[in-house]
Design a binder for these strands. Structure first.
Lengths: 196, 196
DNA sequence: AACCATACGGAGGCCCCCTCCGGTTTGTCA
DNA sequence: TGACAAACCGGAGGGGGCCTCCGTATGGTT
């Protein structure tokens, strides 16, 4: 969207010519929209049609289905990273909680994308590694603050916690409150002290 | 496998003629094997080939891909239900923990199946409802014991906990220990008391 | 043994992913 | 502005997977 490219964005190269750039964006927008609506398995032909573009054009920009999914996915991750910075500064426990609540709400609508990507990509594909790194770096300060304040047990890493939250975020359920309740319980595990 | 049909098994009707019953089992076995190996998206033609059966025969027994997946899925759920009964009687917290550790280990290899099923079925399809009910009934006593012993907070239901554990079990990761660690942290949330 | 219901098997239709290549547009340089 | 090369567009068609249809074979019964 902007000219500043952070982390994982760099993996995705954008086209040069004016019409190509236009089409690239149109396809991305149409794809985002289609995935938000239909959920799973939208045909690429359908996305091309929505974007007002031929199927050949779509494949010029995204050599395979996977490439299109990746581009969308990176966008989502960036979004999550940005929102971590917003929360820095407030009460450590609340900040951590708040970030993960956004996770739940945001990811809630997009399992399909992530699930489909995992069918194509190996878990340690460069894309995933970079996204993980970005997310970890974004969340690290939040967790560290809470740990230094003695609010969170020291034997968990940001990686553990994020994996846990993402797992919970992906629980399919039409009742968002249920997932939030589960999240709260699981996060309470972060401040459980075995001393008692 | 046996003549006693528990809960969800009843949803699945078995064929009558001897050759048909033989083929039915051969297909199920081949499918289980194929899914255990390949993971995602094994072609039905491939499964039929493995079972030494024509594609038409496969479709006679399982009118669509979804039906075959359902049959496999029910088997897995039954397995989990059975294993809950084994654990009843031991220390309440250990029993609960033990059951969920088996979840992690067992489900770990089978996300593909569940994920694919969710693409076809609505969450409140009869099959899922029945499976949920079975699982809940199996786990209920374990949770109740732990709650009555004061080891687990009272504001969680077996449904909450199972959803949480399944979510964690589905976290893709090549390191089983990581998922077990995450599970322990999340389960500690069950015995967190806000009083402190 | 003869008959019928049931079951088998594979050719083929449809849809989706992706490739290929002839025609068109864009940006540049004189 | 005009013309050229590079970049881009678009859709026909190949390939594979899911599923249907129907002629043939087999199991069970009289």
């Amino acid at each position: 969207m902007s000219t500043t490219e952070t982390g994982a964005q760099a993996l995705i190269t954008r086209p040069q010519r004016a019409d190509a750039r236009r089409n690239y964006e149109k396809i991305l927008t149409a794809a985002r929209q289609a995935f938000a609506e239909g959920g799973e398995s939208t045909a690429l032909e359908e996305i091309a049609r929505r974007a007002g573009v031929g199927i050949g054009t779509l494949y010029r920009h995204f050599p395979h289905r996977q490439a299109l999914l990746e581009a969308l996915y990176v966008g989502e991750v960036e979004e999550m990273c940005r929102s971590a910075a917003d929360l820095d500064g407030s009460d450590p426990w609340e900040a951590l909680n708040g970030w993960f609540e956004r996770f739940i709400a945001y990811i809630g609508t997009k399992h399909a994308l992530a699930a489909e990507l995992q069918n194509y990509l190996d878990l340690d594909a460069p894309l995933f590694q970079l996204c993980r790194t970005s997310l970890f770096e974004a969340g690290e300060p939040l967790l560290k603050n809470a740990q230094e304040a003695g609010l969170v047990r020291p034997d968990v890493s940001i990686g553990d916690v994020i994996q846990m939250v993402v797992g919970i975020a992906k629980i399919p359920s039409r009742d968002p409150e249920l997932n939030e309740h589960i999240l709260r319980v699981a996060l309470d595990g972060l401040r459980y002290q075995a001393d008692a």
